[in-house]
Amino acid sequence: MATAAQIREWLTEVTDPEIPVLTLEDLGVLRNIQKVNDIWVITITPTYSGCPAMKTMEEDIIAALKKHGLENFKVETVLTPSWTTDWMSEAGKKKLLEYGIAPPVKPTANKKVLMGISETIICPRCKSSNTRMLSQFGSTACKALYVCDDCKEPFDYFKCL
């Protein structure tokens, strides 16, 4: 008999197809594992509405659980409460940084909501804070494009949501 803890352990094999160092749990996409009427219900939530990786993640979850012999389960997607970068685990943020992507920084108390000044983002390569945003929109929906003015390297920043 599988337990929720065991399923959670198996699901550490499933990673974000676009950022393969992050597991679904690191990312905060895996919301719940619960048995309802003899069926395991795995609940996930999308990062962005249009995230093209969601379908792949769902298929990867199904494949991983089948591989471990689990049969009675289904994967459900919920929108609420809506995903936020606050759900990314500390381990996940550390892995991101090592992977070369600056992890999300909590928005400051700065009240410039709409025309806000961007936060200081540390360069994942040389750790300089002398960085600037090139574009609010980067290689995927969840990232912004930055450049470091010390080591001159461009880098991705996992932006806050």
Partner: peptide, 20 residues
């Protein structure tokens, strides 16, 4: 390039919202 990518990211958000 940056602005091409930005508009397409926004387009993707809209399409994702439309799907919902």
């Amino acid at each position: 390039l940056e602005q091409d990518i930005a508009l397409i990211n926004i387009a993707l958000d809209h399409i994702g919202q439309a799907r919902n």
